[in-house]
Amino acid sequence: MLKRTIPLIIASIVGIVLILAKFSHPIQSWETEVVMWFDILAVFAFVLGAGNLNLNNLKKISERKAGWGYAAITLLAFWITLICGIGKLGVPPNEKYLAYAWSGSYEAEGSAFWWIFNYVYVPLAATMFATLAFYISSAAFRAFRANNVEASLLLLTALLVLVAQTSSGPMLTDQIPEESAWAIFKIDTIRGTLVNLFNTLGTRAIMIGIALGVVSTSLKVLMGVDQSYLGGD
């Protein structure tokens, strides 16, 4: 009952009310209220997440599982950041309340948390994102193969867009006059056609399919047809 029926009833009622809210002015604001409820729930989820993170990693360390060193580093990083943030270490006091040492913001410039954010988190996050460039080159080498007609078309499109996205690429066809019949072969024009026409067409088709899929999945959840997300069929 508590695990299945009540969550289903809540999901159905909230879902239906939010659908109706789209069509009625007085209950339109309820949607925002529900978003707020979710935020409140999500705050508690941070506690749940932190608890699970500690439990899992402590278990790994105590059992000396493979990679337990990583678990130790994770826990160390977690606690240092948490203490720096909550303890407001190195936070300069707010200009209006200079007498109170803790009156400044935890992320104020010069604080320990600010330092961790700017000099540990920022470079690490940027590095991870930058690795994408390397993976793109290895995927390009492996995946863009003209095995058949479709793959060849894909390959040709990729090459054209790559050239068009450079500064010098479009200059290759600069000699073609804008008014001539050959202007359709200018790299900028080809790129424009590929991006604005073919890409938009394909994306819209996929988006229509996705929207219908979302409707169908949502209805299954609201009607309780698919309960697998609650731990059963």
Binding site: A45, L48, G49, N52, S228, L230, G231
Partner: peptide
């Protein structure tokens, strides 16, 4: 997300 973890645990358990 920890909420996803909770839901996934229920699902896999089931």
């Amino acid at each position: 997300r920890s909420l996803v973890m909770t839901v996934a645990r229920e699902t896999v358990d089931g």
